[in-house]
Computed example of a mutant assay.
Amino acid sequence: MNGQKILQTQNNNEWETIGTIKKVDEGIKPGVYNIYLAKTPVDKKQYEGQIIHVDKDNAVFYQQVNKEYIVHQLNAVEGKPVAGKDVAITYDGEKATLIPIDTFKNKRTLKI
Rank of each mutant, 00 (worst) to 15 (best):
residue 1 M to N: 11
residue 2 N to R: 10
residue 3 G to V: 02
residue 4 Q to W: 10
residue 6 I to Q: 10
residue 6 I to S: 05
residue 7 L to V: 15
residue 7 L to K: 14
residue 9 T to N: 10
residue 9 T to K: 11
residue 10 Q to N: 15
residue 10 Q to L: 13
residue 11 N to A: 11
residue 12 N to Q: 13
residue 13 N to I: 02
residue 13 N to C: 03
residue 14 E to M: 11
residue 15 W to L: 13
residue 16 E to S: 08
residue 16 E to L: 11
residue 17 T to L: 08
residue 18 I to C: 08
residue 19 G to H: 06
residue 19 G to D: 02
residue 20 T to V: 06
residue 20 T to G: 10
residue 21 I to G: 03
residue 21 I to C: 02
residue 23 K to E: 13
residue 23 K to S: 15
residue 24 V to H: 01
residue 27 G to D: 04
residue 29 K to R: 10
residue 29 K to S: 12
residue 30 P to H: 09
residue 32 V to D: 03
residue 32 V to Q: 05
residue 33 Y to I: 00
residue 33 Y to T: 01
residue 35 I to F: 03
residue 36 Y to T: 12
residue 36 Y to F: 14
residue 37 L to S: 12
residue 37 L to R: 07
residue 37 L to V: 03
residue 38 A to F: 07
residue 39 K to S: 09
residue 41 P to A: 02
residue 41 P to D: 00
residue 43 D to T: 00
residue 43 D to W: 01
residue 46 Q to K: 14
residue 48 E to I: 08
residue 52 I to H: 03
residue 52 I to G: 02
residue 53 H to G: 07
residue 53 H to T: 04
residue 54 V to I: 10
residue 54 V to A: 07
residue 55 D to G: 03
residue 56 K to F: 00
residue 58 N to K: 15
residue 59 A to H: 14
residue 60 V to D: 03
residue 62 Y to T: 05
residue 65 V to S: 05
residue 66 N to V: 10
residue 66 N to G: 04
residue 68 E to M: 04
residue 68 E to S: 10
residue 70 I to D: 01
residue 71 V to L: 08
residue 72 H to L: 01
residue 77 V to Q: 00
residue 77 V to D: 04
residue 80 K to M: 07
residue 82 V to Q: 09
residue 84 G to C: 02
residue 84 G to S: 02
residue 85 K to E: 14
residue 86 D to V: 15
residue 87 V to N: 05
residue 89 I to R: 02
residue 89 I to T: 00
residue 90 T to W: 03
residue 90 T to L: 05
residue 92 D to N: 06
residue 93 G to T: 00
residue 93 G to D: 01
residue 95 K to D: 13
residue 96 A to R: 00
residue 98 L to R: 03
residue 98 L to P: 01
residue 99 I to T: 14
residue 102 D to Q: 10
residue 102 D to M: 05
residue 103 T to N: 12
residue 103 T to K: 08
residue 103 T to I: 06
residue 104 F to C: 15
residue 104 F to I: 15
residue 104 F to V: 15
residue 105 K to N: 11
residue 105 K to S: 08
residue 106 N to D: 08
residue 106 N to L: 12
residue 108 R to G: 15
residue 108 R to Q: 15
residue 110 L to G: 10
